[in-house]
Design a binder for these strands. Structure first.
Length: 188
DNA sequence: CCAAAGATGTTCT
DNA sequence: GAACATCTTTGGT
């Protein structure tokens, strides 16, 4: 199992979102470790993406998105749910990848269907926003193992839960995975 | 099983 | 004051 370094996150958000599928999201919590395999992600841009928090420039909330890649951006959605992103692209440009769904491996198996459930099960909160996933002592980090996608297919679909730039295929899923937050409509 | 709507409070205009 | 990168419950089929 090898941890992902900063260079992994330096590309454009769609490429990173695609590459994150099958990786492990790990949270160290003292002696215990929580691990989940990422099965659904979404890419968000900056000034070019009307659906992004960063579309209208930096604000106190989304300023992290303009910083260096590999840093967590955690925000509260609808006043209730924490949503975990990792910043992508070079410093100065805004972009990030949202982890929408994952398969929980430890401390016990489960399906984390939706971004709010991912953060709740792993214990990620706003306190983690701004922390560097690629740092040696990171509490939250990504890692690669031998299983990865296990040969599964990947599909790009429109993003979920947004009202602008709806048509961009910037949501990436592991096909037919039971932990997906939504079923993909059959296209015949 | 699927669709609709309420809860909830932070963020930005 | 309106919008919101969501989740749960309720009610209908």
């Amino acid at each position: 199992m090898r941890r992902l370094g900063r260079s992994f996150f330096a590309g454009d958000p769609a490429a990173v979102a695609r590459a994150l599928l099958g990786t492990l999201l790990v949270v160290r919590d003292g002696p215990t470790k929580r691990v989940a395999r990422v099965v659904e992600t979404e890419a968000y841009g900056g000034a070019d993406d009307p659906a992004s928090h960063a579309f209208r420039g930096p604000t106190p909330r989304c300023a992290v998105m303009f910083g260096p890649p590999g840093v967590l951006y955690v925000y509260k959605s609808y006043g209730v749910h924490w949503c975990a992103n990792v910043v992508t692209g070079p410093r100065g440009t805004a972009s990030a990848v949202l982890v929408r769904a994952a398969e929980l491996l430890a401390p016990e198996p489960g399906h984390l269907r939706g971004p709010g459930r991912v953060t709740r099960a792993l214990g990620v909160t706003g306190a983690d926003s701004g922390s560097d996933c690629s740092a040696r002592d990171a509490r939250v980090f990504f890692a690669r193992d031998a299983v990865g996608l296990a040969g599964a297919d990947v599909e790009a679909t429109p993003r979920v839960g947004i009202s602008r730039a709806v048509e961009r295929p910037w949501r990436f899923v592991v096909c037919a995975h039971p932990a997906l937050s939504r079923r993909t409509p059959a296209s015949t």
